[in-house]
Every structure is written in structure tokens, then in C-alpha cells.
Measured scan of single mutants.
Amino acid sequence: AEKTGIVNVSSSLNAREGASTSSKVIGSLSGNTKVTIVGEEGAFYKIEYKGSHGYVAKEYIKDIKDE
């Protein structure tokens, strides 16, 4: 099942092309942005936001229960 997560940073969080800190940054998400978690790979979540996919470090995403 898809989960919703909240970007848990004070400034912004980089979204990357792949599940690695050396992957190209494809965008950034500001704190408290809601994202859909579609998968996980190592220390990263694969997320969907406004129709695009990217990878973000798990430690900066807070899971919330689907309402």
C-alpha cells in the first residue's frame, strides 16, 4: 500500500534521480511537503510528488498514517 510521508526538514530536501547521494539532484522539496512513498531502496524512499518520481533520504521523511 502507498504511504504518505512528510518532508521533515527546516529548509529543503533534495530529491534525486537514484537511491544514492551521488545521484543527480532533480528537485527540492520544502519542509512539511506531503509526498507519496511508493517504494524503498536502502536508505532511500522512492517518492511521487506532483506526478514525478524521485529518491529522498529516509531519515528526512516522517511517515504519517493514511487518513
Results as ranks from 00 to 15, higher is better:
8 N>R: 12
3 K>P: 04
4 T>Q: 09
41 E>A: 07
35 V>R: 00
40 E>L: 05
11 S>Q: 10
39 G>T: 02
66 D>I: 14
38 V>A: 03
65 K>W: 10
63 D>R: 11
23 S>C: 10
2 E>T: 15
37 I>S: 01
35 V>L: 04
11 S>Y: 09
62 K>R: 12
64 I>T: 07
37 I>D: 01
6 I>T: 08
30 S>M: 14
22 S>M: 10
55 Y>E: 00
55 Y>Q: 00
66 D>T: 12
39 G>W: 03
33 T>G: 04
31 G>H: 14
2 E>L: 15
25 V>M: 05
41 E>G: 02
31 G>W: 11
60 Y>G: 08
41 E>L: 07
25 V>Q: 03
58 K>H: 01
59 E>I: 13
20 S>I: 06
5 G>M: 05
45 Y>M: 02
17 E>C: 13
47 I>V: 05
63 D>T: 14
17 E>M: 08
33 T>R: 06
1 A>H: 13
35 V>S: 00
29 L>Y: 03
34 K>I: 13
44 F>Y: 11
53 H>Q: 07
12 S>A: 09
62 K>H: 08
32 N>S: 08
58 K>Y: 03
60 Y>L: 06
46 K>F: 06
24 K>R: 13
35 V>Q: 00
42 G>D: 05
65 K>L: 11
25 V>H: 03
5 G>N: 02
8 N>Q: 09
65 K>T: 13
60 Y>C: 14
17 E>A: 12
24 K>F: 05
57 A>P: 14
45 Y>K: 02
1 A>C: 15
49 Y>T: 00
16 R>L: 15
41 E>I: 08
44 F>D: 02
2 E>M: 15
10 S>T: 11
57 A>W: 09
41 E>V: 10
2 E>Q: 15
14 N>T: 12
30 S>T: 11
47 I>Y: 02
28 S>N: 08
38 V>T: 06
24 K>C: 09
20 S>H: 08
43 A>D: 14
43 A>K: 11
32 N>T: 06
41 E>T: 07
17 E>S: 09
36 T>Q: 08
50 K>D: 09
41 E>D: 09
30 S>E: 13
43 A>H: 08
10 S>R: 13
53 H>I: 14
36 T>K: 13
2 E>Y: 15
46 K>P: 01
6 I>E: 03
8 N>Y: 09
49 Y>R: 00
48 E>K: 15
6 I>Y: 11
24 K>H: 06
28 S>I: 14
31 G>C: 14
63 D>F: 14
53 H>L: 10
43 A>M: 10
18 G>R: 13
49 Y>K: 00
32 N>K: 08
10 S>D: 10
15 A>R: 03
19 A>L: 06
29 L>R: 01
66 D>M: 13
22 S>R: 09
58 K>P: 00
21 T>M: 15
61 I>G: 01
27 G>K: 04
67 E>M: 13
19 A>V: 07
57 A>C: 14
9 V>T: 11
12 S>E: 09
66 D>F: 14
54 G>S: 06
4 T>I: 11
1 A>Y: 15
9 V>L: 07
21 T>L: 14
47 I>P: 00
64 I>M: 07
43 A>T: 08
61 I>N: 00
61 I>W: 02
64 I>V: 12
41 E>S: 09
53 H>M: 09
10 S>C: 15
5 G>F: 07
16 R>P: 02
14 N>P: 15
25 V>I: 13
29 L>N: 00
5 G>T: 03
37 I>R: 00
18 G>I: 06
7 V>C: 06
48 E>A: 10
27 G>V: 08
48 E>C: 15
64 I>K: 03
1 A>G: 13
1 A>M: 14
59 E>P: 03
29 L>A: 01
48 E>T: 11
27 G>M: 15
24 K>A: 09
39 G>M: 04
63 D>G: 08
16 R>E: 02
21 T>S: 12
21 T>E: 14
2 E>K: 15
7 V>G: 03
65 K>E: 10
8 N>L: 09
9 V>A: 09
49 Y>L: 07
37 I>T: 00
28 S>R: 14
50 K>Y: 10
47 I>Q: 01
63 D>H: 09
52 S>R: 13
46 K>Y: 08
26 I>P: 01
54 G>V: 14
40 E>F: 05
55 Y>G: 00
25 V>P: 05
47 I>F: 03
38 V>H: 04
33 T>E: 09
13 L>H: 02
28 S>E: 10
4 T>N: 06
14 N>Y: 14
41 E>R: 05
50 K>W: 07
59 E>Y: 08
34 K>M: 11
40 E>S: 06
6 I>S: 04
26 I>G: 00
22 S>A: 11
20 S>C: 09
55 Y>T: 00
51 G>N: 07
63 D>Q: 12
43 A>I: 09
33 T>D: 08
19 A>T: 07
